[in-house]
C-alpha cells in the first residue's frame, strides 16, 4: 500500500492515538483523518515503534513532542533531538510539533550551597514573554528545525500563572517566533480558553492577532477545574465554549487540520471519533477542503 503523503497533514479531523487504542485501531482501521502521537513514547525500537509504523501504513501521522523544552535555559538535549530525528526518519511524519514552554534549568541552587544540575521538570511550563526569551527560543527552534530538516509547529500553552516581566502577550510572542524562524503555529483552542479563564487573556483578540498563514493545526481538548483553576487535563470532552472559540478561529484563521486530544481517563475509541466527527462537521461547514 502507498503511504499517505508525508509533507503536511490533510485538512480534516484526527485524533490523538494513545496506547489503549492501538490494537483496536489496527484491527478495525476506523475512518480517521490522521493521528497524532507523543514522540517520547516511540523513542527506541521494539513494540511501540513497530505499532506506530503499522499505523503509519494506514494514516498520516503527526509527531507531537512534550519533552524538548524549547524555552529551557539548560542546553538543548542533543540526545533527545537525535532520537526525534531517528523517529522522523522511520515514520516520515506529516507534521512535527512541540510546545512553547520550558522544562529544564542548567543548575538550580537550593538551601544555599546545594546545586542541582540539569534539573528537568517533566511538565509544560510557562515563562515570561520577553525580547530576550524570544531570541533564546528562536535560536533553539532554528536548531531543532535545522536538525530535523523541516518546519516545526509550535503550540501555545495552557498556563496557571503569568509573569510581571512579560513584555508581550503569548500570541505576540508566537507570531514573532514564527516570523523569525519560519516555524508554524499549532493553535490549541482549549489552551487559549484555559488562559482566558485563568489569566484573563482576551481570547478573541488572541485569535484575530495570530498570523493566519502561519497556523498549521488546531488542537481541541477538555480540561478540568481545581480550586477555581482550569487545568489542561485532556480528560473530558471539548466544552461548548471551546467549540465556539474554534468556530471563531475557523472564521478568522480558516480551516486547518484539527486534532482531538485525550490523555487521561481515556474513553472508548468511539467517543474520540465522535468528538473528531464534531470537528469535521465544523470544518466542512466552513468550506474545508474535501477529499
Amino acid at each position: 500500500m502507498e503511504k499517505p503523503a508525508n509533507d503536511s497533514l490533510p485538512c480534516i479531523a484526527g485524533i490523538g492515538l494513545r496506547a489503549p487504542h492501538y490494537c483496536e485501531v489496527l484491527e478495525k482501521l476506523p475512518k480517521l483523518g490522521w493521528v497524532e502521537v507523543h514522540n517520547e513514547n516511540f523513542f527506541g525500537g521494539g513494540a511501540s515503534l513497530r505499532t506506530l509504523l503499522k499505523v503509519r501504513e494506514h494514516y498520516p501521522v503527526s509527531l507531537h513532542g512534550v519533552g524538548m523544552g524549547l524555552a529551557s535555559t539548560a542546553p538543548l538535549d542533543q540526545a533527545h533531538l537525535s532520537a526525534l530525528c531517528r523517529l522522523c526518519d522511520a515514520v516520515q511524519p506529516a507534521a512535527v510539533s512541540e510546545h512553547l514552554c520550558w522544562n529544564s534549568v542548567p543548575d538550580m541552587t537550593i538551601n544555599g550551597p546545594m546545586v542541582i544540575n540539569d534539573l528537568v521538570i517533566n511538565d509544560l511550563l510557562p515563562f515570561p514573554y520577553t525580547q530576550e526569551a524570544l531570541s533564546h527560543v528562536a535560536r533553539r527552534v532554528d536548531q531543532v528545525q535545522e536538525k530535523i530538516g523541516r518546519r516545526l509547529l509550535v503550540e501555545n500553552l495552557s498556563s496557571y500563572l503569568s509573569f510581571t516581566s512579560s513584555e508581550m502577550s503569548e500570541g505576540e510572542f508566537l507570531s514573532e517566533l514564527s516570523r523569525h524562524t519560519g516555524c508554524a503555529i499549532l493553535f490549541d483552542v482549549n489552551n487559549l480558553y484555559v488562559n482566558a479563564r485563568n489569566l484573563g487573556v482576551d481570547a478573541k483578540a488572541f485569535i484575530k492577532a495570530l498570523p493566519a498563514e502561519a497556523v498549521a493545526e488546531y488542537h481541541l481538548a477538555g480540561h478540568s477545574i481545581r480550586d477555581g483553576c482550569l487545568v489542561d487535563t485532556h480528560s473530558t470532552q471539548v466544552c461548548a465554549e471551546v467549540w465556539e472559540l474554534y468556530e471563531f478561529a475557523l472564521q478568522h484563521i480558516g480551516p486547518r487540520p484539527t486534532l482531538i486530544e485525550w490523555d487521561s481517563d481515556i474513553p472508548v475509541l468511539a467517543v474520540l471519533t465522535g468528538e473528531a466527527e464534531k470537528a469535521q462537521q465544523r470544518l466542512e461547514e466552513y468550506h474545508a477542503c474535501f477529499k
Binding site: A71, V105, L125, F127, T130, H136, L161, S165
Partner: peptide, 24 residues
C-alpha cells in the same frame, strides 16, 4: 535574565518555595 525566573519557578515547584516576585 530568563534563567532567574525559571530557577525561581523551578524551586517553587520542586521545593515548595515562594515564587519569584516577578510572578503575577
Amino acid at each position: 535574565v530568563l534563567n532567574d525566573d525559571l530557577s525561581d519557578f523551578a524551586r517553587a515547584i520542586v521545593r515548595g518555595e515562594e515564587p519569584s516576585s516577578r510572578v503575577v
